[in-house]
C-alpha cells in the first residue's frame, strides 16, 4: 500500500483565552497589578479541534465539510504549517500548495505579469517553475493585453482569475483549496472546479474545503465532516454529503 501524503494523528488544537484580550503592555500591567504573576498563563483554553485523525493518500480528492467555526480553516492552517498542533502530529510527504487565499501578496501598482512572479515566489516557487507556467496562466486567466496593466485597475473577478491561475498552474502535487471559489462569476467558478477536476485526473491530490454538499457529491471521492471540533464522518462522498445535509438542517 502506498504511503499517505498527509498523515494526521490525534490532532488537537487549542487556543489560549488570553489571546482574546488586546495584546498590549497596558493589558499586561493591569493583569500584573491584579496579582497575577505570570500573566501569560490563564489556564483556560478552548479547543478548536479535538483528537482528529485521518490519512490522505496520493490521488484522492477529499472534501472537508463543517459548519462555520467547526475548525475547517484551522485544520487547513495546521496542515499547511502555519499553526502548530497543541497535541498530536501532522506528517506531510510532499510539497503542499495551500490555496487559502488567491493572489496573496498582489501589489496594486504592479502589472498582472509582475504579480504572477511575486505571487508564485510567495507561494514558495522558484524562477524556473514560474517561467514555465506563464503561458498557461495567460491562457487560463483570459486577461489578454490587460496582463501588462497595473492590477489596481482590475475588477475583483479579474484579480481572482489571475490569482487562481497562478495557484492552480504551479506544479504542486497536493493542493489545499479553501473556500476561494466564492469570488468570480458563475462561469469562472465552474471553470475553476473543472480545472481542479482536471488536476485531480492528472494525478494530483486535492483537499477541498467547502460548505456546498453538492460540490462534494459531484467532485470528491471521499468526504470528511467535522462537527463540534471532532471528526464525525469519514467515508464516501455521497453518504457524506447526505450526512452533512441532515446535520445542518
Amino acid at each position: 500500500m502506498t504511503e499517505p501524503v498527509i498523515e494526521v494523528k490525534n490532532l488537537t488544537k487549542s487556543f489560549d483565552h488570553w489571546l482574546d484580550q488586546p495584546h498590549s503592555f497596558k493589558n499586561l500591567l493591569t493583569r500584573l497589578s491584579k496579582g497575577k504573576w505570570n500573566p501569560f498563563v490563564v489556564g483556560k483554553q478552548y479547543t478548536v479541534l479535538n483528537d482528529v485523525s485521518f490519512d490522505i493518500y496520493p490521488g484522492e480528492f477529499v472534501g472537508i465539510m463543517g459548519r462555520n467555526g467547526a475548525g475547517k480553516s484551522t485544520l487547513l492552517k495546521l496542515i499547511s504549517g502555519i499553526y502548530t498542533p497543541t497535541r498530536g502530529t501532522i506528517e506531510t510527504r510532499s510539497i503542499i500548495a495551500p490555496l487559502i487565499e488567491l493572489g496573496a501578496g498582489f501589489h496594486p501598482d504592479l502589472s498582472g505579469y509582475e504579480n504572477i512572479f511575486l505571487n508564485a515566489a510567495i507561494l514558495g516557487f522558484g524562477k524556473k517553475a514560474t517561467e514555465a507556467i506563464v503561458p498557461a496562466i495567460l491562457e487560463f486567466s483570459e486577461l489578454g493585453e490587460q496582463i501588462h496593466k497595473p492590477i489596481r485597475n482590475y475588477s475583483s473577478g479579474m484579480m481572482a482569475r489571475l490569482g487562481f491561475s497562478v495557484a492552480i498552474n504551479l506544479a504542486a502535487p497536493v493542493l489545499l483549496v479553501d473556500e476561494i471559489l466564492a469570488v468570480g462569476d458563475a462561469g469562472f467558478q465552474a471553470k475553476c472546479l473543472s480545472k481542479i477536476d482536471e488536476m485531480h485526473r492528472s494525478g494530483r491530490t486535492i483537499v477541498l474545503i467547502t460548505h456546498d454538499p453538492n460540490a462534494i457529491e459531484r467532485h470528491c471521492s471521499r468526504c470528511i465532516v467535522i462537527e463540534n471540533c471532532e471528526k464525525v464522518y469519514d467515508g464516501n462522498a455521497r453518504d457524506g454529503a447526505e450526512y452533512y445535509k441532515k446535520l445542518v438542517m
Binding site: 501578496g105 501589489h107 504592479l110 515566489a121 514558495g124
Partner: peptide, 13 residues
C-alpha cells in the same frame, strides 16, 4: 526568488 521579487515590488511601489 522570493527576496528578489519582494524587494523589487517594494522598490517599484
Amino acid at each position: 526568488f522570493l527576496v528578489y521579487n519582494m524587494v523589487s515590488r517594494n522598490i517599484k511601489s
